[in-house]
Design a protein around this nucleic acid. Structure first.
Length: 584
RNA sequence: GGGCUUGUAGCUCAGUGGAUCAGAGCACUUGACUACGGAUCAAGGUGUCGGGGGUUCGAAUCCCUCCAAGCCCGCCA
């Protein structure tokens, strides 16, 4: 099912190739783009302006020749040439109507599967064991999940990897403190109740910072742990399990699927990574540490900036782990694309890692490594997002607060409308709205910029928010209930007579292009924006065009438009990781 | 000192592979409830697109430069 833009593109491409006598010709810019202004029709092409110059012709004349030979009668009204040489295209109503009839019967709403599925690793979320997940992890989790959902829907094989920080020097400190404060763990040989893992971490850190003897103990534990001491390994596993359970609560709440493959997984490969880099003469010894020096990376003092792959004490660091992970994903997982969803502060680190991987030959031209960076989450005061007392906000508290506020809003609403709803209905709805609001607030913003976290704004009923989009969907379901319509048994004939119908119809047709664009630029806010505009256009249609009370054939056609809107909203939101509700 | 990101309406931000755009939402004012659920819709306006150069027939968009904010820059991740 080709979108209108693609069909136009094909026709025009063929004409130009014939015209140039170059069957392989490809444009440097898109041939067809949506019209910049509704008054110019639905699509436009600027190709005559650039091509005519090269051919030494007048753009308008060249455009006219192209249009004479393009046979677009079935697609659109006779195209026009405007200004210096823009070609403007307006789709024919009959074409729009028949296209929508196909789209409404397609479970994928016109979005094609990719021709060549790839194996794509999406590395996201990645919290640290025994530390609390914070808003930075929230962004990574929400954006990463969205991209993973998109790739899955497009038909790729997707590996959702949670690269948790489960292997590092912090475990020396944690286990040393465990041994000191909870010796029964080692004597009873079974799980004990540590209470809150995060405050346990804090206590351990406090102990570590204040006592040199303790620090030395911690260091020795790290060495023994890495050597495979069974008792310490079981303590390590115990702590990881505790953390894992906490993380899982959040993933369940967010409805995010992840496969855990933490840093410890790559531990066995670290020596070979360093050895291979030495063998390839990429790694050199500098001040006791093994380093890879790269072009284009300079220190504060202007000296070359190394990527350290083995510390002077013999230990490995995150660069080594990232290299091992990259190699494993390419060679063992068969990844053709690896997506890293982390904050923008790690850009330089990834640029270095990717470059070393290329030089080492692990990263070939057939594999794409893409860092998908995002900005900071700030509080409403524009500073780092923290609680009133200045502490990091725990993710669980944050999500629960969003749900609590959503439920409060609902309660107030019920009282005002004198509605009765069951507690189950209310709990479920509050959960969906609260979580969706958090997700949508994040995804609707350009991920590169910092974003200000505000419960009030994300839960607002007006504007570009989750509740607004969800309400548009609910309105359609309300129509179905009122009119006792079973949309599943329903294939409409479309006939449009009014502006709001055409505007909505044309927007619905753009959905596949919107999804494809997200697949290319990986900016979820573009899709969010599309869905917001869809909701707006639907509400305008709903306001101006009676549906149930209209006579046929308008009634059936309008029911079809409403149904298709709901289908596209549901599918589009699902790609963002947001569910819909039938009533709210 | 090097690098990255950001700078657009009072606020939050879209738009940044040139032409035919200065845009949306919020907030503010006013209108539409004999209702397919008004959690909606309609009307109302303010901008040196951070500054300055340059390329072009044309720049918020590309290039150069400067300014501001934030982040990164050898053994944390």
């Amino acid at each position: 099912m080709l979108t209108p833009g693609k069909q136009l593109n094909q026709h025009l491409m063929a004409v130009i190739r014939t015209f140039l006598g170059q069957p392989e010709w490809h444009p440097n810019e898109p041939l067809i783009v949506p019209a910049s202004h509704p008054q110019f029709g639905d699509f436009q092409s600027n190709i005559a302006l650039t091509l005519a110059k090269k051919l030494n012709q007048k753009p308008r004349d060249f455009a006219a020749q192209l249009l004479q030979n393009a046979h677009l009668e079935e697609l659109c009204e006779p195209p026009t040439i405007a200004g210096p040489g823009f070609m403007n295209f307006t789709l024919k109503p009959t074409y729009i109507q028949s296209w929508l009839t196909q789209q409404i019967q397609d479970p994928r709403c016109g979005v094609p599967l990719v021709d060549e599925p790839e194996t794509i690793v999406v590395d996201f979320s990645s919290p640290n064991i025994a530390k609390e997940m914070h808003v930075g992890h929230l962004r990574s989790t929400i954006i990463g999940d969205c991209l993973a959902r998109l790739f899955e829907f497009q038909g790729h094989r997707v590996l959702r990897l949670n690269h948790v920080g489960d292997w590092g020097t912090q475990f020396g400190m944690l286990i040393a403190y465990l041994r000191e404060a909870y010796p029964e763990f080692f004597t009873q040989n079974q799980g004990i109740d540590l209470g809150d893992l995060v405050s346990f971490y804090r206590q351990a850190k406090q102990r570590f910072d204040g006592d040199e003897t303790f620090q030395e103990q911690a260091r020795q534990i790290v060495v023994k742990l890495q050597a495979g001491d069974p008792e310490l390994l079981s303590a390590w596993r115990f702590l990881c399990d505790l953390s894992r359970r906490e993380f899982q609560q959040i993933y369940d709440l967010l409805d995010v699927q992840l496969t855990e493959r933490g840093e410890s997984f790559y531990n066995p490969f670290l020596p070979e990574i360093v050895q291979e880099l030495k063998d390839k003469h990429l790694a050199v010894l500098d001040q006791g540490a093994w380093c890879v020096f790269l072009e284009g990376f300079v220190n504060a003092d202007g000296s070359p900036l190394p990527l350290i792959i083995q510390k002077s004490d013999g230990g490995y660091n995150y660069a080594t782990t990232d290299l091992a992970a990259l190699r494993y994903r390419v060679q063992q997982d068969g990844a053709q694309r690896i997506i890293y969803v982390t904050d923008v502060g790690q850009s330089q680190h990834f640029a270095q890692v990717f470059q070393v991987a290329k030089q080492a030959g692990w990263l070939t031209e057939k594999v794409q490594c893409i860092h998908v960076p995002f900005g900071l989450v700030l509080g409403e005061d524009g500073k780092k997002f923290r609680t009133r007392s200045g502490e990091t906000v725990r993710l669980k508290d944050l999500l629960e607060e969003a749900i609590r506020r959503a439920e409060q809003d609902m309660q107030a609403r019920l009282e005002a409308e004198q509605r009765q709803e069951s507690p189950e209905f209310m709990h479920n709805l509050a959960r969906v709205i609260g979580i969706s609001a958090v997700k949508y607030a994040d995804l609707s913003q350009n991920r590169l910029s910092n974003y200000s976290f505000s419960y009030d704004k994300m839960l607002a009923l007006q504007g570009n928010t989750a509740p607004y989009l969800l309400y548009a969907y609910v309105r359609v379901q309300g129509i179905a209930r009122k009119g006792a319509i079973d949309f599943d048994q329903f294939i409409p004939e479309f006939v449009f007579s009014t502006q709001p119908e055409f505007i909505l119809a044309k927007h619905l047709m753009q959905f596949p292009d919107g999804v494809e664009q997200l697949g290319q630029d990986l900016f979820p806010n573009r899709l969010s924006n599309y869905l917001f505009e869809l909701s707006q256009k639907f509400n305008q249609f709903y306001d101006q065009c009676p549906i149930l009370s209209a006579p046929d054939p308008e009634r059936t056609s309008r029911l079809g438009l409403a149904h298709l809107t709901a289908k596209v909203l549901k599918l589009g939101l699902s790609l963002l990781g947001i569910p819909v509700v039938e009533r709210m």
